[in-house]
Structure formats: C-alpha cells, structure tokens
C-alpha cells in the first residue's frame, strides 16, 4: 500500500506501523475528580470497536519516516485510501487541546 503523507507525499506503507481505530484518540478523562462512570468509559474506549466493511479511520505511525501519527481513512474492502491527516491536527480539531 501507499500512504499519501500530508507532509512528505506518497510513502510505502512498509514505513508505517499500524495501530488501530482512530477513535483511540478519544481517551476518556481518568482524573480522580471526574464525575461519571469512568471505568465504563475506559472499558468502551479500550475494548469496543467497530469493524466496518468499508471506510475506516485508523491510526498509522510513520516509524520509518518523520515519526508523525497519521489518521488514514481506508476502505477495508478495497484498500482505497481517501484521506490522510496528521493525527495531531485531528486530535486538536476533535477537542483534545488542553
């Protein structure tokens, strides 16, 4: 596969390490003073994932490159990659800024 890195252009997927569902960005807050069922939230975060036959947003690490984490939107049926973003941009856009 070829991943079109947003900064470096097309790079062989062999340079990357696959991690998993991009929802792993959405780690719940585990602070002791958080209200709500923290352990249930972490259970969901850690173990419950969709396994779509089709478009899937997933995390890839450019281990053999610039060490960026990327969010890659890949069709699991065709391997067609429709979007590649820097994970840090996605994380900020999705509310991970502190």
């Amino acid at each position: 596969m070829i991943i079109n890195h947003p900064l470096l252009g097309p790079r062989d997927a062999a340079e990357f390490t696959y991690f998993g569902d991009a929802n792993l960005i959405h780690r719940p807050d585990g602070s002791p003073d958080t209200t709500g069922n923290t352990s249930a939230q972490f259970y969901t975060y850690q173990y419950l994932r969709d396994n779509p036959a089709g478009e899937h947003r997933e995390l890839w690490f450019h281990e053999g490159g610039d060490r960026s984490w990327l969010v890659v939107t890949r069709n699991t049926l065709t391997h067609d990659i429709s979007n590649v973003e820097l994970a840090s941009d996605v994380a900020r856009a999705e509310g991970r800024s502190t």
Binding site: L7, L8, G9, D66, R67, S68, L86, S88
Partner: peptide, 20 residues
C-alpha cells in the same frame, strides 16, 4: 521544508519531522 535540506558553508540543516 519537509523533505528538504539546506547547506551553507558546511552547515547543513535537514527536516526530520514536524517543527523538527
């Protein structure tokens, strides 16, 4: 820029990662 280096009198800088 990403993927590039500069060279000035033996001092070479090359991009290795975002802002690095």
């Amino acid at each position: 820029a990403p993927g590039r280096s500069t060279n000035s009198q033996g001092l070479v800088a090359f991009w290795v990662g975002p802002a690095q």
